[in-house]
């Protein structure tokens, strides 16, 4: 079956599976024998994007390493909901670290495996956005700098959800959290603060950096698989909508992740050794309002008084991403970030 025919099949290559494709072209998730690294019975909220993203990423890593994978996991939602004593949802070797030292723990694992001559066993370290961009940042930067053989995955739900939705360095402007209330002249999180962690990782010039979302499974799995083909420090930043913290419908998790990409709010790209090598194009561009309106954390932008000037500022940020990363089809001459620093 050639590519042309596949492209024009009912759902092209966007759905999880496709009964008309041969097995080799299926996603890992379409496989009944997928490892289900994070299995049922976990205590994540209904519609949890992080639980979904973790299974997507780790199942793909499990396939890429033929099941020889160890994970270190920072404190956070993912750790709390998956391992209340004496239960565990992990079907892979898994170790809980402190909130801030998951990269260092992973470094130790990689070093130990090296000493034992077990280069076949690979290490993944994972954390939420708080454990990555704030509390774990020092350890992570060190891990990057030493180029330790670890894939670090950040599941970004844009705030400290586990402790009650406090602002993190990954919380976007105007979003309401418990610590950035929707009050005053500039309600919600302030503009001009926070960290762009994927670009910080690029700036470390590590072998591989990528962003992904739970809405683009084929893209996510490809990036995880690609990451496992490198040795050294690698970083994948996955956007995982949080119905609780975002005030969104539990059924809208994947939809919101998709809208984050289609608006330009969350650019999908890959970088190798400090250079951006690929960006995913927007298929159907939509204004940011479509992404913001379904989320309770942005409710103050619409009621009781509409705040078009804030919407405009958010749109400008999205437009900047679109121009910066060349997210529209045909815009290959993008102003790439790697060039900016030089």
């Amino acid at each position: 079956m050639d590519d042309q025919q596949v492209k024009f099949y009912q759902v092209g290559s966007f759905a999880v599976g496709n009964r008309l494709l041969d097995g080799g072209k299926h996603t890992v998730q379409a496989d009944r024998a997928r490892s289900n690294s994070l299995t049922s019975g976990h205590r994540a909220c209904q519609g949890c994007g992080e639980a979904l993203g973790a299974r997507y990423a780790l199942d793909a890593a499990m396939r890429a390493t033929e099941g020889r994978l160890i994970a270190a996991n920072a404190t956070g939602c993912l750790e709390v909901f998956s391992t209340p004593y004496p239960e565990t949802s992990w079907q892979i070797p898994w170790l809980h670290s402190l909130f801030g030292n998951a990269p260092a723990i992973a470094t130790g694992m990689a070093a130990a495996l090296k000493v034992k001559g077990r280069s076949d066993i690979r290490v993944v370290s994972q954390a939420g956005d708080g454990g990555t961009v704030d509390i774990g940042f020092g350890c992570l930067s060190g891990m990057f700098e030493r180029n330790d053989d670890v894939l670090f995955i950040c599941y970004d739900n844009e705030a400290y959800m586990n402790t009650g939705v406090q602002r993190s360095g990954a919380t976007p402007p105007a979003a309401r959290t418990a610590t950035t209330e929707a009050v005053g002249a500039e309600p919600g999180n302030v503009f001009g603060q926070g960290k762009n962690m994927p670009l910080l990782a690029v700036a470390h010039e590590i072998p591989y950096v990528a962003t992904a979302t739970v809405a683009e499974l084929h893209d996510l799995e490809r990036k995880v698989e690609k990451a496992m083909s490198f040795r050294g420090a690698r970083y994948i930043h996955i956007l995982v909508p949080c119905p609780l913290g975002w005030g969104s419908a539990t059924s809208d998790t994947v939809r919101l992740a998709r809208l984050a990409c289609e608006t330009g709010v969350f650019p999908l790209f890959e970088a190798e050794n400090g250079e951006i090598t690929a960006t995913s194009k927007i298929r159907h561009q939509v204004p940011v309002e479509e992404y913001l309106r379904p989320q309770g954390r942005y409710k103050h932008l619409f009621t009781p008084t509409p705040r078009p000037e804030i919407l405009k500022k958010i749109q400008q940020l999205a437009d900047r991403n679109i121009a910066r990363f060349g997210l529209l089809a045909g815009s290959d001459e993008a102003e790439l970030v790697g060039a900016e620093g030089s």
Binding site: Q5, F8, A15, N18, R19, H26, T27, V254
Partner: peptide, 29 residues
């Protein structure tokens, strides 16, 4: 071949065609 192509444009409205989406997107397996 173009009959096959045309048939594959069907959206299968309202009837499962086994795309695995539900199997994939469930956060709880």
């Amino acid at each position: 071949d173009n009959a096959l192509f045309e048939a594959r444009r069907c959206l299968s409205c309202g009837n499962c065609f086994e795309c695995d989406n539900c199997f994939g997107v469930c956060p709880d397996n």
